[in-house]
């Protein structure tokens, strides 16, 4: 299992060829209280960095991009029912969707935690 990060403040955790995607603590803090989540359809093919989920906070609208190319195999209904889960547990219960990734090496090529922490200041 490896976890990687994007400069758009997504995290992606790869187990086998399926990866879970969410937003970082830094991102949820910047956005403020989330009030709305719109998930991608299961089965949708996403290109790397394509807009996947729509999120709205009390302050602004934003997108969650797919960090790598793949197909959506599952979405998290809990964050649609209660968007505040993304604020309270962004890197756990507040995950957005799972992807069957086209190429697991694409994940490994993203920033590791140290590189992300150094960039997100």
């Amino acid at each position: 299992m490896i976890t990687r990060y994007t400069e758009d403040h997504e995290w992606i955790r790869l187990e086998g060829d399926v990866a879970t995607v969410g937003i970082t603590h830094f991102a949820q803090d910047k956005l403020g209280d989330l009030v709305y989540v719109e998930q991608p359809r299961v089965g949708r093919k996403l290109a790397a960095r394509e807009d996947a989920a729509v999120i709205e906070s009390v302050k602004a609208a934003a997108e969650v991009k797919s960090p790598v190319a793949g197909e959506v195999v599952e979405t998290n209904p809990a964050v649609v029912d209660d968007p505040s889960l993304v604020n309270s547990d962004p890197e756990g219960a507040g995950w957005f969707f799972k992807l069957r990734v086209d190429n697991p090496a694409d994940v490994a090529a993203l920033m590791d935690e140290a590189a992300y922490k150094a960039s997100a200041v």
């Binding site: 403020g32 209280d33 009030v35 009390v58 302050k59 505040s84 604020n87």
Partner: peptide
């Protein structure tokens, strides 16, 4: 101040 630590909703 746009918000304090408790956040806009609270």
């Amino acid at each position: 101040p746009v918000q304090y630590p408790s956040g806009v909703l609270k």
